[in-house]
Amino acid sequence: MSATNILVVFYSRHGSVAAMAKHIARGAQRVPNTNVVVRQLAEASFSHEQTSAAIPDDGYPYCELDDFVNCDGLAIGSPSYFGSMAAPVKLMLDQTSPIWMSGQLADKPACGFASASTMHGGHEMTIQSMMIPLLHHGMIWAGLPYKNRDLIATATGGTPYGVTHFAPHTQYTGLSDEEINLCEAQGQRIAELATKLKKA
């Protein structure tokens, strides 16, 4: 069987979501015969003018539609803006209509991850906002089960909807040990599920 391709795509404003993406990718790489592609999203433009360089100054390459087409499993991340995904994530998902029409994401697993600056800043709702369009694609949502004991122990990020991070400062100060463990567990889970579904 060919390698299982996992796409980890995210938008990060202050670095927290980017750090989560790195650990999710690390967890996915634990699964044998898995290829992990990490992509970031550019700032969204409301004037339809380019607001970001064509190539990012640092970090991962920008996500393109083909990255979605070629994936066997997807992890998508966003900061929480008023309990919803950030505009760049919504813009990217809105551009997936062509592959929705052809069903190219149907029956593939997906998961979400998010960061918010307050404990009640909409972590779970942000993940749910990303879940809805992916359910329209026919993707199979994979949450984070409580067999991961860090989900019970954490005093910062977690949730059974997907891993989250509590970022009380706009300056990134690092993920907690529990958040790192949960990110890696979620990455491993999505890769394992994608491999099983690909075999089936």
Rank of each mutant, 00 (worst) to 15 (best):
V9C: 01
E43Q: 10
A86N: 12
D94T: 01
H169P: 09
H14M: 11
L182E: 06
K196N: 09
Y11T: 10
S129D: 11
C183I: 04
S47R: 15
S2V: 13
A53Y: 11
T173K: 14
D72N: 05
S97D: 08
T126H: 04
L93G: 05
G112Y: 02
E49P: 10
Y62K: 09
Y62D: 06
A155G: 15
Y146F: 15
A21M: 11
A142Q: 15
Y81S: 09
Q95V: 02
N33E: 14
H48P: 08
A28G: 05
R13S: 14
R189V: 02
V69H: 02
F10V: 02
F46C: 11
D150V: 04
G157W: 05
D57N: 12
K147C: 14
A110L: 11
A54D: 13
A54N: 11
V17E: 07
G77I: 02
K198T: 02
L91D: 13
L74V: 01
A25T: 06
V37E: 00
L134S: 08
A18E: 15
L41H: 05
I152H: 12
Y146G: 15
H136E: 15
H123W: 06
S47T: 13
R26F: 07
N181A: 15
T156E: 14
Y81P: 05
M85A: 12
T51F: 10
P109M: 01
T34Y: 00
F113S: 08
P98H: 07
S102K: 07
G174W: 11
L144H: 04
D94H: 02
P56F: 01
E192N: 11
Q188C: 06
K198Q: 07
K147G: 14
P160T: 13
A106K: 14
A200K: 15
K199Y: 07
I140M: 15
M125N: 15
F10S: 00
R26S: 13
L151Y: 07
L144N: 05
L65S: 03
D72C: 01
V31M: 11
G122L: 03
M1L: 07
T96P: 02
Y161C: 04
Q128C: 14
S47K: 13
T156C: 10
G143A: 10
A75K: 03
A54L: 13
T4H: 08
N70W: 00
Y146P: 11
A44G: 10
A142V: 15
H137V: 00
G187S: 01
W100S: 04
D107R: 13
A114Q: 06
F68S: 03
L197R: 08
K108C: 01
T156L: 09
G187V: 01
